[in-house]
Design a protein around this nucleic acid. Structure first.
Lengths: 206, 206
DNA sequence: TATTTTGTGTTGCATTTGCAACACTTTTTA
DNA sequence: TAAAAAGTGTTGCAAATGCAACACAAAATA
């Protein structure tokens, strides 16, 4: 919210030093395709998008998914060789600029400084969410992945509740497991008395 | 190398505004235990360390591993409730400071600006490595994880070589798979004519 | 509102993976 | 240098997971 406001302000102030380009993407539209050695940075002002990788056999996997205030771009995948594409899941407002341009600027003004601070904050958040994701993905079983996810989302101890914001399909993608296997495992957790499920509410029972 | 030099310089220049604390840790020593709501940031100047999580049953898993110029700390795990500990794998030189202190500073001087730029660069690299890791961990099978790892480490196409820097044990931990199952899968890849292994060199054959 | 698309729960079966145990090699430590 | 510790390769077996297929529910779209 606040970041959105700040960025709009900066777009004007930085117009001559560091042009921030803005665009709206419709659902299903391709926001960007990652190109090695390019250094674009995108900021998702609103909406939701997925980073998708197509395999040789035509199927695809979702490497990452982005929400409001998320930051992405080929600049963060320097050594990549695969076809990586960011696709809008909903209507998205996106801001982007070239990181090389930012680095090349020698004159420091206050707006630029402020912009760097915003970027700093966005990167900070990005590291946190990536760390969380890595902590979940390193778990060996679906059960452990689920419990770790519930924990990171509110169900920190006995009696605490995790309110699911993702659909089960999306949750399975996020945990990178088979959807039906996950569905089965949630049932096991309930049968074993480890969790309780009421609609989108998961309660920890241990 | 350069960052190390820069940071030593800044330690002196920032002594009064933002004290950067430095310490050497011996192998096996605990560098830090993550505490919720604290905001320490650590920079690994030299050495190697693991972020370790102990389970209820006493076994542990390695959530992340850090190398030279890596950045870590509880500040990046705001919602965490588990016991997370960073343990030196080798002799480590570590620099740390409190992020809240950095945020609270109102006077801007050049050294501080320079320090922020270094931090920016470190965070940038951190996002890249975490993105790579996530791209690997989202792969469903050991085979795909291995191939993605080889790709990110040099074996980008037919005939290209990935030189392994990790031991097989460590690689299995990094990919978050069972070591012996990974060993078996490497053999399968060789038998299927997909890779060639010569010592620590993996060559892509497709 | 009717129709299409997407999400959900369930199942049997094949495959993959983890686990445990062992021998052997290499590296580290005393 | 000898002894201990850590790393590696291998195997059978059990358990977990993926996959495919299906019916049905819910949501999005025309």
């Amino acid at each position: 919210m606040e970041i959105r406001y700040l960025l709009t302000k900066m777009q004007k102030e930085l117009a001559t030093t560091l042009p921030l380009k803005s665009r709206i993407y419709k659902k299903e539209e391709t926001i960007t395709t990652y190109i090695p050695n390019r250094s674009h940075i995108f900021i998702l002002i609103s909406g939701e998008a997925d980073l998708v990788q197509y395999d040789l056999n035509g199927s695809f996997s979702i490497i990452d998914s982005f929400k409001e205030n998320d930051i992405f771009g080929d600049v963060f995948y320097p050594s990549n060789t695969d076809e990586l594409t960011v696709i809008a899941k909903k209507r998205c407002q996106v801001l982007w600029f070239d990181y090389n341009l930012l680095k090349s600027i020698t004159i420091q003004n206050e707006s630029l400084q402020e912009f760097k601070d915003v970027l700093f904050q966005l990167m900070f958040n990005k590291i946190s969410t990536l760390n969380n994701r890595a902590a979940i993905l390193t778990k060996r079983s679906i059960r452990e992945k689920l419990l770790a996810y519930f924990e990171f989302n509110g169900a920190t101890q006995y009696g605490k509740v995790c309110t699911l914001t993702l659909s089960y399909s999306d949750l399975a993608k996020y945990l990178s497991v088979n959807r039906s296997a996950m569905s089965r495992e949630i049932n096991n957790l309930i049968e074993d008395g480890i969790i309780k499920k009421e609609g989108k509410q998961i309660t920890l029972l241990y």
